[in-house]
Amino acid sequence: MERTRFFDKMEQLSTRHLLGIKDLNPNDIELIMATAKEFKEVINRPIKKVPSLRDVTIANVFFENSTRTRLSFELAEKRLSADTINFSASGSSVKKGETLLDTVNNILAMKVDMIVMRHASPGAPHFLSNHIKANIVNAGDGTHEHPTQALLDSFSMQERIGDLAGKKIAIIGDILHSRVALSNIFALKKQGAEVMICGPSTLIPRHITATGVTVSHDVREALAWCDVANVLRIQLERQQIKYFPTLREYSLYFGINKKMLDELDKEIVLMHPGPINRGVELSSDAADSHHSIILDQVENGVAVRMAVLYLLAAQN
């Protein structure tokens, strides 16, 4: 007989996988934020571990390089007491010609409950989600989405400036190659924020205004307009052709330094998802200034990823 009790039941996510922010509804985002807040308290304790996911096994499958995201996920999993296995494409059978689905099915045959995956091809986690049972967390798929980064960015913004509805967020830099930009646009729009993207016209994707953002090509205009500036890295490794003449020229026109921040007649919050190219999109004095919450973002990353894993695991 089912016992009855009075405790408040937790809301559930509307999705089984976290493939992208596009699939989430505003309630999901709110639930993740609220849960992450409790986990942030947990990771700031002397003993930073809770036993919630002690019977869950998670595979971190990284087909592309990563430092922060991978460490952050791994730490989040360990703080939740999950068993983890790590896989990186270099030094694996992928090099021998194994397909993505075969690789993942082999991992799942070892009784894995959740997959955290990064892949260079946009849509790779969506493809997998149609074929496998395990919960999938997208840790970045090519130039498409990076949902946990956008969630931790929103969490960090909320910590500084409160509710994001009506707030003005500028995303500055290489928008074309950035999965962080797209996920951030979806996340911010769903929370009612105004979004402006700013960068050289060659690095702004066509039709991006369809997402409801405004476009600027003047970084000073963007800084004067915004409450928060999220600065993105120039992703040289994804640029097969020249999008701007030189890094020096990019830095002169779109780089942000402390002087520009000091000249504003207001306080803004400066963010960067990392890794920073110091002296290109951000000067060192700006990156290390009191405006910057770059290291808070990294700390919050663990709490937000704990929340995502916890909420997905809760559905089983």
Binding site: K9, E11, Q12, E38, E41, V42, S52, Y310
Partner: peptide, 26 residues
């Protein structure tokens, strides 16, 4: 003290809403 994350029925029945911990001493 909130013990939600320490429950032994996680994933076995409907999950509960976590609440804030506030333990201002050791």
């Amino acid at each position: 003290l909130d013990a939600t994350f320490y429950r032994d029925d996680f994933r076995r029945r409907e999950p509960l809403k976590p609440n804030a911990n506030k333990v201002p001493f050791i």
